[in-house]
Design a protein around this nucleic acid. Structure first.
Lengths: 140, 140
DNA sequence: GCCAGATAATTAGCCGGCTAACTGAATTTG
DNA sequence: CAAATTCAGTTAGCCGGCTAATTATCTGGC
């Protein structure tokens, strides 16, 4: 079909395929869908404000509220009000949240190897660069 | 961050950005999220069986059930049982469903132009081809 | 012909995403 | 200082996606 000539179609279809497969691995670690994406930022900076997650994840505030509620319920993070700036919540890792980091990173590494199998370094670099240009076209 | 060197990260992030923007345009036409993707197959073959949509969209049966229920409620399609093969439902366009086709295709064309702005034909082709290889790596 | 198994679709219930409308805290401004 | 505004986060409710379990309809083998 002519649709198959569209970059957008290839992009979205491939991303969906990736996410579907990736979620299987995450489920084995006790995580759902985009929870790894959120944890990534908490691993990088323990205690970051909730509002910053909204920015990092490019997602709306209610989405973060729900995700954190579930991650907290599942025992990966806990939230505390900032004592000086009380309208703000900060997100902290629990022991369980810290422990799972290396498993998730191993999962990402495995997924990346599988996705890029048979690509040269140049092909991979070129794909990433084009994706970045497409994204900035869309944001502009 | 090192994450930015991963193809998968670039892929998923760009696709999300695309979908978010695309949905704004679809909303103006009275459609939601993936409803255009489903309609595409009905435009190509009016009266196709519901089960075929499951295959085309690479999605699970309950997802199609829900999407069709909403598209039907919104008046874009109607479903009829196959008279000979009664366990199967077929999906037909309404007048409204037919009318909207050209608007959606114009939307896709606009989005594609915006996404690929500044890319050469070769860059675009190369991106699509790499995406296809990544996808087949993941499916295998 | 009849019963077992495969197949088409549905229901219930969960998660991630959104918008709209709201609460409560902090800051700006008259 | 008080009122208005802006900002952080929540709640409700919708949609697209999933899995698990169920219903209804074929199809095959005995």
């Amino acid at each position: 079909m002519e649709q198959d000539q569209r970059l957008a179609y290839a992009l979205v279809r491939t991303a969906k395929t990736y996410l579907r497969l990736s979620n299987l691995g995450l489920a084995e670690l006790g995580l759902q869908q985009g929870q790894d994406a959120l944890l990534r930022y908490v691993w990088a900076r323990d205690g970051l404000p909730q509002s910053e997650l909204v920015g990092c994840l490019s997602v709306e505030p209610p989405t973060v509220t729900k995700m954190l509620a579930r991650l907290e319920k599942a025992g990966f993070v806990k939230r505390r009000r900032d004592p000086r700036f009380k309208k703000q919540w900060r997100v902290y890792l629990t022991a369980k949240g810290k422990q799972i980091e290396k498993d998730v990173q191993a999962h990402w590494t495995r997924m990346e190897a599988r996705a890029t199998h048979g690509l040269t370094a140049a092909e991979k670099r070129s794909f990433i660069e084009t994706a970045a240009r497409v994204r900035s076209n869309l944001i502009a």
